[in-house]
Design a protein around this nucleic acid. Structure first.
Length: 423
RNA sequence: AGAGAGUUGGCGGAGUGGUCGAACGCGGCGGUCUUGAAAACCGUUGUACCGUGAGGUACCGGGGGUUCGAAUCCCUCACUCUCUGCCA
């Protein structure tokens, strides 16, 4: 979340950044925040004074008791009654002010970077790169939902029976292709200098707040009955939360982690007839890269991560484009986000397969993730990106690589799959 | 899952109601000594919030309570260890 001190110091900039993000009443909300913070400080001053006074008397009572002056002690005790209720009141007020302040800050998104384009909808995103050649498909080319049935590699009906819609069963060469992609992505990341971790796929509420899924996206996560735990919507949550309440050393930076996990999303409200096959699932596999950097290095790291993700798409021989998201289309916690979209030729659609974001210190502030800079604790910057999400990659491979003979497996994957054709 | 024992500063470990933010040891940092280093000795060494500052307040796993006063007593939750049970 944003820091109240920063907000007060840069009010116009924060207002603008929030408005770009789509917070219509930003100025009013910030005004409220500033007022609340002033109240908080004033209350603390009064409370500290009251506590100081009663503490002093208490110490005197201790001394009097020890010297055997019971009367004096009783007299002193009488003085504390009023102070006690006063400081208790102030304490309650302070707590309330702090709670309100935190609530408001929790519900305030990160501010957009200056270079983020204005806009409200995906149409306002800026295409910054197009790469690869568009496949030319035969007249009778099929969308992937038909191909998976034809080759019997993914079974939605079976998933319906076991779990429900959006939980497919991968079979035979389909299952092997999944495993191949996961291993390929992990190996590539390792080569690029990311340290592999395998985190839990359920998280507690502290972790949810740490990276900003709570309270913003509670409805998007699957909760676990009777336990205050959630299934992760992305590995970003458990991996980044490794560093919650951590003071890193400058020489440890940058931290670069990669992890594979399944991801679970309710996708409440976004389910519709236009979302077919692998385009949107409740459970999907993803390899995620996470970086923690010095503040001054985070935008260079963002570019590096994009370059890395692009290299994966090139190796898979998939045509893709890179978008710089406009303020209105960005995630709650992000300061700048690039999306990577592959072209899925039979359904003639661009599919988002990666989202690479710089959160600056927004998550770090919630996480209390810091390092010592000249003896001062300073918030670090966090970043993450999909590298990559599987289902839509699979959709694009199936559609783009289809022919009469079957579906050609990209060369880089063949040593992982053990076959070069799905037929 | 049941029974018991724990959780104190970077680490180890005292402290069971009163000047305790916390003895002592280790580690870290600074210094003396040394050509340099080691050893020895001296000093210093948590975090956050409030305050222009002097300084103040809070924090001994989390939350709540008793008390003039809580690391210390009570309740509750979480976690760790040991034993029993169950299990991949």
């Amino acid at each position: 979340m944003l820091r109240i001190a920063d907000i007060k110091e840069n009010l116009p900039k924060v207002t603008k950044g929030l408005e770009k993000k789509g917070v219509a009443d930003a100025a009013a909300q910030l005004g409220e925040l500033v007022k609340l913070d002033d109240l908080r400080r004033k209350t603390q001053m009064e409370m500290d004074a009251a506590l100081n006074e009663s503490k002093t008397i208490s110490k005197q009572i201790g001394v009097l008791m020890q010297s055997g002056d019971k009367e004096g002690a009783e007299k002193a005790k009488a003085q504390t009654g009023e102070l006690k209720s006063k400081s208790k009141n102030l304490q309650d007020q302070l707590k309330e002010a702090e709670e309100q302040l935190t609530q408001m800050l929790y519900n305030l998104p990160n501010i957009a970077h200056d270079l983020v384009p204005e806009g409200k909808t995906p149409e306002d995103n800026k295409i910054v790169l197009e790469n690869g050649t568009m496949p030319e498909l035969a007249e009778n080319a099929k969308p992937h939902w038909d191909l998976i049935e034809q080759y019997d590699i993914i079974d939605f009906n079976l998933g319906n029976k076991i779990s429900g819609a959006g939980f497919p069963v991968y079979k035979g060469k389909g299952a092997k292709l999944q495993r191949a992609l996961i291993n390929f992505f992990l190996d590539e990341a390792a080569k690029a200098g990311f340290d592999e971790v395998q985190p839990p796929i359920v998280i507690n509420t502290d972790s949810g707040y740490g990276t900003g899924q709570l309270p913003d996206k509670e409805g998007q996560m699957y909760g676990i009955v009777d336990s205050d735990l959630f299934l992760i919507p992305t590995a970003e949550v458990p991996i980044t939360n490794i560093y919650r309440d951590v003071m890193l050393k400058e020489e440890d930076l940058p931290v670069r982690n990669v992890g594979y996990t399944p991801c679970f999303r309710r996708e409440a409200g976004s389910w519709g007839a236009h979302v077919r096959g692998l385009n949107r699932l409740h459970q999907f596999d993803k390899v995620e890269i996470v970086q923690i950097t010095l503040p001054e290095n985070s935008y260079a790291a963002l570019e590096d991560m994009c370059t890395y993700v692009e290299s994966l798409l090139e190796k898979l021989e998939l045509p893709f484009r890179k978008l710089l998201l406009c303020g209105g289309d960005m995630g709650f916690t992000s300061a700048m986000t690039y999306d990577m979209e592959v072209y899925s030729a039979a359904q003639k659609k661009w599919l988002e397969v990666s989202s690479v974001s710089n959160f600056e210190s927004y998550q770090a502030n919630r996480l209390k993730l810091r390092y010592k800079k000249d003896g001062q604790s300073t918030l670090l910057h966090t970043l993450n990106g999909s590298a990559l999400a599987l289902p839509r990659i699979v959709a694009a491979i199936l559609e783009n690589n289809q022919s009469d003979k079957g579906i050609a497996v990209p060369k880089v994957l063949q040593s992982y799959t053990g076959f070069d054709l799905i037929d």
